[in-house]
Amino acid sequence: MPSLSYIAALNQALRDEMARDERVCIFGEDVCLGLTGITKGLAEAHGTGRVVDTPLSEQAFTSLATGAAIAGQRPVVEFQIPSLLYLVFEQIANQAHKFSLMTGGQASVPVTYLVPGSGSRSGMAGQHSDHPYSLLAHVGVKTAVPATPSDAYGLLLSAIREPDPVAVFAPTLLMGTSEEIDGDLDAVPLGSARTHREGTDVTVVAVGHLVPVALQVAADLADEASVEVIDPRTVYPVDWETLGKSISRTGRLVVIDDSNRMCGFGAEIAATAAEEFGLAVPPKRVSRPDGAVIPYALNLDHALLPDALELTEAIRAVLRR
């Protein structure tokens, strides 16, 4: 079985979509060089007319993509740093996302925002270590956080084909991973969760790089408990049907995601489960603390991130009740 790396999967998705659809083009910083690895070789293959190095003008090139999309292109915009999304929140949340409704459906804005290197980069400190997918989910931008190379390929493909703006976050801690691929790669529909491990005692909902962490914890706890691990794959829209079935069956829920706690993705999953899914015991969240700013020193950085130990304790806590 061939091995596929996470970065190669994203690169392949771009390569395939650019070959399939002439409208697909790429904007971003250092994209011709392929500094993040994701766009490597695409300028050589498709020319600098379609793979466009931009100056460091995130706000302008984000809205430039909006204008180009309304005019018939399918732009992919790469951001080198997740915090750049704060800079372009106006352009994404207030312009691109609202265009369809505000114009009464006259046109939509099919742009993909690609955010590689999201989450802690171990030592990159306060302004390079956020993982702000919950923010986009909150305003209603379709948002994917793929956990495996094949999902990265499939979700990016779907993002580019979607008629609305879609953000795709590639967590730093996954970008060095690989997967043995059995069969063909294919598109993964937005809003479809993936049950990675079936179980009967507790449902663990894990996002992004915390999916492999959750799977390891579930394996380690196999003698104690039967843990079901579900990756929602897109944090907006959420596959409530798959989550609801699992949570209703196990009656117990732990959510682990790398958001800040207040209004984070985990809060929404826990709230919906409490309202609708008949929890037997109160749910648990494992997240970053409220309003976390990641400090520089490595031990401090790691101290604020959700990890296997916290997840293990949370699972045991919901099982004890």
């Binding site: 083009c25 007319g49 379609r50 706000q59 302008a60 090139f61 984000t62 809205s63 430039l64 993509a65 909006t66 204008g67 180009a68 999309a69 309304i70 005019a71 018939g72 292109q73 106006e90 352009q91 207030n94 312009q95 265009f99 505000m102 114009t103």
Partner: peptide
Amino acid sequence: GANGIVGAGAPIAVGAAWAARRQ
């Protein structure tokens, strides 16, 4: 579109021009 944010339309127009040339 008219636009509720001052200046927000300028880069959108640039994008439309970019697309026109591309096409």
